[in-house]
C-alpha cells in the first residue's frame, strides 16, 4: 500500500515538473517582455534610437527576434550577448565594463570630484583673506616709525 502511495506521489510530481517546463517553453512573450529587453539595446542602424521605440522595419525584425529568443527560453543576458556577437557592442544601451569603455564610468566621477574641489577651494578663498595677506599688512604698519608719524602730523598742521 505504502509503495502504491509513493508511486502515485512520484507520478504527480513528475507530471507537475513536465507540465511546468512545457508551460515555460510554450509561453508567448508579451510586448512588455520584449520591450524590457529591447529598451536595453539600441538600433544598430539608426543613430541613438533605443530598440523598443525605433519605428523602422529593421527594428521590428529585431524585436521579433527578441520575442523568438524569449519564447525559446533565452535569458535577458543571453539575448544581449547574442546581439553583441551579431552587431557589436555599440548596440548596448549601457556600455560594457571592459577595455576602453571603462572611461565612460571613470572619467565623469573624477571630473565631478575635481570640479567640486575647485568650487570648494574657490569659495573658501573668496570668504576670508589668507593669513599671508594679513601678515603683509601687519608688516606695513610696523614700518611706520615715530619720526614718520611726527612728520605727517606737522604736515597736517601746516595744511590747516
Amino acid at each position: 500500500m505504502k509503495k502504491n502511495i509513493f508511486a502515485l506521489v512520484l507520478t504527480f510530481l513528475l507530471a507537475g515538473l513536465w507540465a511546468g517546463s512545457a508551460l515555460a517553453q510554450g509561453k508567448t512573450p508579451t510586448d512588455d517582455d520584449v520591450n524590457a529587453v529591447a529598451s536595453q539595446l539600441f538600433c544598430p542602424v539608426c543613430e541613438n534610437t533605443p530598440l523598443d521605440v525605433c519605428p523602422t522595419a529593421a527594428c521590428k525584425q529585431w524585436r521579433e527576434l527578441i520575442r523568438l529568443k524569449l519564447s525559446e527560453g533565452w535569458s535577458e543576458t543571453q539575448i544581449k550577448e547574442y546581439f553583441v556577437a551579431q552587431y557589436g557592442a555599440r548596440v548596448l544601451a549601457e556600455p560594457p565594463r571592459q577595455g576602453f569603455s571603462w572611461l565612460v564610468y571613470i572619467v565623469p566621477p573624477i571630473l565631478l570630484a575635481i570640479g567640486a574641489y575647485l568650487v570648494f577651494t574657490t569659495l573658501r578663498s573668496m570668504r576670508k583673506p589668507t593669513p599671508d595677506v594679513a601678515q603683509v599688512s601687519v608688516g606695513l604698519e610696523t614700518t611706520v616709525d615715530d619720526d614718520d608719524l611726527r612728520r605727517v602730523e606737522e604736515e597736517l598742521k601746516r595744511l590747516q
Binding site: L118, S125, T130, V136, G139, L140, T143
Partner: peptide, 13 residues
C-alpha cells in the same frame, strides 16, 4: 623700510 615679503598664493595644488 618696508618689508617686501612675497604673498604666498594658496590655490589648487
Amino acid at each position: 623700510m618696508t618689508e617686501t615679503s612675497q604673498p604666498v598664493r594658496k590655490g589648487v595644488p
